[in-house]
């Protein structure tokens, strides 16, 4: 395995770790806002990391020059769309919740 492969493995593990964090946060946080926050941030970051792993893998394993460049470009575009779309969706959900009066969590209200 080349160095790029090891970097890809590293990225994959980091992405899976943050996905795990997202799932735990989504289940364990106390109210709507904090849960959405966990979903929005963790999801975006871990998608980025896994896409980066895909790029490293593509670079080290395919040998037709232009094809690799196009593949990496497509992955970059996907990353770009996730980067725009996911935080905006999170914002939209949170804003809708705020406008319709979902209450915050307070420490002294905790059971």
């Amino acid at each position: 395995m080349s160095i790029l492969d090891w970097i890809a493995v590293l990225f994959l593990f980091a992405g899976s770790f943050f996905f795990l964090g997202t799932a735990i946060g989504l289940l364990r946080f106390p109210d709507f806002y904090t849960r959405t926050h966990a979903a929005g941030k963790g999801d975006t970051l871990s998608s980025f990391l896994i896409l980066a792993a895909c790029m490293c893998y593509a670079i080290s394993h395919s040998h037709d020059g232009l094809g690799t460049v196009l593949l990496v470009l497509k992955l970059l575009f996907i990353a770009n769309f996730i980067g725009i779309g996911s935080p905006t969706a999170t914002h939209a959900i949170m804003d809708a919740g705020y406008e319709t009066g979902v209450t915050h969590w307070h420490k002294d209200k905790a059971k």
Binding site: F81, I84, H91, D95, A96, E99
Partner: peptide, 22 residues
């Protein structure tokens, strides 16, 4: 649903302006 208008949000508008042409 309770009335909520996402078109008031500048963030959503700008994001969709970036995404729709692509």
């Amino acid at each position: 649903l309770p009335p909520y208008d996402p078109s008031e949000s500048l963030i959503i508008r700008q994001a969709s302006r970036m995404m729709v042409p692509f």
